[in-house]
Design a protein around this nucleic acid. Structure first.
Ligand SMILES: [Mn+2]
Ligand SMILES: [Mn+2]
Ligand SMILES: [Zn+2]
Ligand SMILES: [Zn+2]
Lengths: 142, 142
DNA sequence: GAGTAAATTAGACAAAGTCTAGAAATTCAC
DNA sequence: GTGAATTTCTAGACTTTGTCTAATTTACTC
């Protein structure tokens, strides 16, 4: 089940509104970049992408916006690299391959990973989500 | 299957040697702290623990040593908090609860989490490990 | 348009982690 | 043992990611 991928500004604005996010100039700019396709990007990358041609968004706003989108369920944070957070524009339930050699993060398609069932949670807690990360490396060529 | 927990210096030195690590003063100090029991600690915590009474290990050596131990399989790195790496003195295969409210990391005991089977890996890669993290939060008291 | 609240911004700041160059300790000839 | 070579340790400068602040700009509302 893949998230809808809007391509035009009007759809993007609609999507932000539906999530309860005021569609400012900067937020729409960032949303357009991110929602164009499923991707895993860092804040630095978003900053660079947004300001590739002319300067349109500040660093503070990029961080604010990514955090806001994540809190509204428009993006998913993936913690797998100790040096930076990945923001994932694929918000459907899925898991990841992480190539420790290249630093590349890839979606695992469909239901090919499934937990048997959740273990008993510590008292007074509830599950917020389950992350499965399969760390892979290049096979050394004999 | 729990890792053996040495309590005396001689055992610790033996364990380091077996792993191919020269047992220097500082490494033994850190190993004693870490291997005393299963725990999840950050580099900052190790630095503080080691130097609690008198100053015995520098920051650089703590980072060098934790990295060395991890590379030799004496410790496991757990990436779950975007602000710091956890070092896990439980090196047996196991998964984790991560309390996003408290920042606490807990082992999931035994075989209570099991992946059905690994999905097909990207061409030219091999699995290095599988991390399952169940993010939990405090249940809001009605 | 005036008033208010929300959003953006530059740049200072913080925290985790790395690097460098020298000092100290250990190991190796002889 | 003595001296040389190697490994380890160290202080502190530095880098990177991310946060914060205080001022400005923008967006609503009347
Ligand atoms: Mn880091
Ligand atoms: Mn960080
Ligand atoms: Zn993904
Ligand atoms: Zn653990």
């Amino acid at each position: 089940m893949s998230t809808v991928l809007p391509t035009n500004r009007v759809d993007t604005i609609e999507r932000l509104k539906s999530a309860g996010v005021t569609p400012t100039q900067q937020r729409v700019e960032i949303a357009q970049l991110l929602f164009a396709r499923h991707q895993h990007v860092s804040a630095e990358q978003v900053l660079a992408m947004a300001n590739a041609h002319s300067s349109v968004v500040s660093k503070a706003t990029v961080y604010n916006t990514l955090g806001l989108f994540a809190s509204k369920g428009l993006l998913r944070e993936v913690i797998v690299d100790p040096t930076k957070v990945f923001y994932d524009s694929n918000t459907s339930e899925h898991h990841h391959f992480y190539n420790v050699d290249s630093g590349e993060l890839m979606d695992i398609q469909g239901e090919s990973v499934q937990l048997a069932d959740l273990p008993e949670l510590p008292a007074g807690t509830q599950a917020e989500g389950v992350d499965v990360i399969i760390r892979i490396k290049q096979t050394p060529n004999s």
